[in-house]
Amino acid sequence: MLLLNNLNSLLAALAFYTCCPIPTKSQLDFSRIARWAPAIGLLLGGGLSLVDLGLDWLQMPISIRSSLIVVLWIWWTGGLHLDGAMDTADGLAVQDPDRRLTVMTDSVTGAFGAMVAVVIILLKTCALAAITHDRVWVLLLVAGWSRWGQVLSIALYPYLKAEGKGAFHRQGLKLPQDILLGLAFIFAVTGCQIYLQPQNWLVIGLRSVASCGISALVGYYFYRKLGGHTGDTYGAVVEWTEAVTLCLFTIPSN
């Protein structure tokens, strides 16, 4: 029964965070899906890696390959996180703090939201195009760490709305086990990379520490700006962590 409940919860997370079609007969349980966010990120990164390897096998230029991967990245997530980053940018652009949440709930995208979307997509595409080695590991870990940062923000900071699409995330989170669960998934992938590339253990370890720090600091930044989080800022944490971490991975390891 426990295994079945966890499976239904994982499938619910997959349905919520991605565009993956889930059978309608599944008894989906959305109450605690936030704990699975890092695992969903790793699955997403794995899917993107397979596509990237296929395009590489077809000898597609890395710049075009990277652009297609970023487009697919947005498509597979339904633009969920990018939309949150855009709404957050529109809210933070307002000088009056009391109006920020109201602006963020407006479905109309403002100038700042559009600019932020362009910046994020450009950063991701250019950074990914500059990464020529270990792209499989990069896609896996970037997608995983960004969603772990989301879970950390859900756990540490207050939710700013009485109701909202992201409110149930905080209500269903169990601490500290749900934070540690995401770390376990990511460290398992990192451990596999170290096992296969033992000569690079120091670089891999340093990148893991830096990625963890970025995911935590991005969530803290939005908390300091708004006094808490909303469903939109959870998406912004994912997008900005992905963009900044991809830039981190462009730094040469030698």
Results as ranks from 00 to 15, higher is better:
Leu3Trp: 03
Asn8Thr: 01
Ser9Tyr: 11
Leu10Ile: 02
Leu10Phe: 14
Leu11Asn: 08
Leu14Cys: 09
Ala15Ile: 00
Phe16Tyr: 12
Thr18Asn: 04
Cys19Val: 11
Pro21Glu: 00
Ile22Cys: 01
Gln27Pro: 09
Leu28Gln: 02
Phe30Tyr: 15
Arg35Lys: 15
Trp36Asp: 00
Trp36Lys: 01
Trp36Arg: 01
Pro38Arg: 05
Pro38Leu: 03
Gly41Tyr: 02
Gly41Ser: 05
Leu44Ser: 03
Leu44Arg: 00
Gly45Leu: 01
Leu50Pro: 14
Met60Tyr: 04
Arg65Ser: 11
Ser66Glu: 05
Ser67Ile: 08
Val71Asn: 00
Trp75Arg: 00
Thr77Phe: 04
Gly78Tyr: 02
Gly78Ala: 07
Leu80Pro: 07
Leu80Thr: 14
Leu80Gln: 08
Leu82Gln: 09
Gly84His: 11
Gly91Gln: 04
Ala93Pro: 00
Ala93Arg: 02
Ala93Glu: 02
Gln95Gly: 11
Gln95Cys: 11
Pro97Lys: 14
Pro97Phe: 12
Asp98Trp: 04
Arg100Thr: 14
Thr102Val: 15
Ser107Val: 15
Val108Ala: 13
Gly113Gln: 07
Gly113Arg: 10
Gly113Asn: 12
Val116Lys: 13
Ile120Cys: 03
Leu123Tyr: 08
Leu123Ala: 08
Thr125Ser: 09
Cys126Gln: 08
Cys126Ile: 13
Cys126Pro: 00
Ala127Asp: 09
Ala129Ser: 15
Ala130Asp: 12
Thr132Asp: 04
His133Phe: 04
Trp137Ala: 13
Gly144Ser: 10
Ser146Leu: 07
Trp148Tyr: 10
Gly149Gln: 03
Gln150Gly: 13
Gln150Leu: 15
Ser153Leu: 04
Ile154Ala: 10
Tyr157Leu: 06
Pro158Cys: 01
Ala162Thr: 05
Glu163Pro: 05
Glu163Arg: 07
Lys165Pro: 08
Ala167His: 12
Phe168Leu: 12
Gly172Met: 03
Leu173Lys: 10
Pro176Asp: 09
Gln177Asn: 00
Leu180Ile: 15
Leu183Glu: 08
Phe187Val: 11
Phe187Ser: 14
Thr190Ser: 05
Gly191Lys: 00
Cys192Arg: 01
Leu196Lys: 09
Leu196Phe: 13
Gln197Trp: 10
Pro198Met: 11
Gln199Thr: 11
Trp201Gln: 09
Leu202Pro: 05
Leu202Glu: 15
Ile204Tyr: 08
Val209Glu: 04
Gly213Tyr: 05
Ala216His: 15
Ala216Thr: 12
Leu217Asp: 06
Val218Thr: 13
Arg224Gly: 08
His229Asn: 12
Tyr234Leu: 04
Tyr234His: 15
Gly235Pro: 14
Val238Thr: 10
Glu239Ile: 04
Glu239Gln: 13
Glu239Thr: 03
Thr241His: 12
Ala243Asn: 03
Val244Asp: 12
Cys247Met: 15
Leu248His: 08
Leu248Met: 09
Leu248Trp: 07
Phe249Glu: 11
Asn254Thr: 06
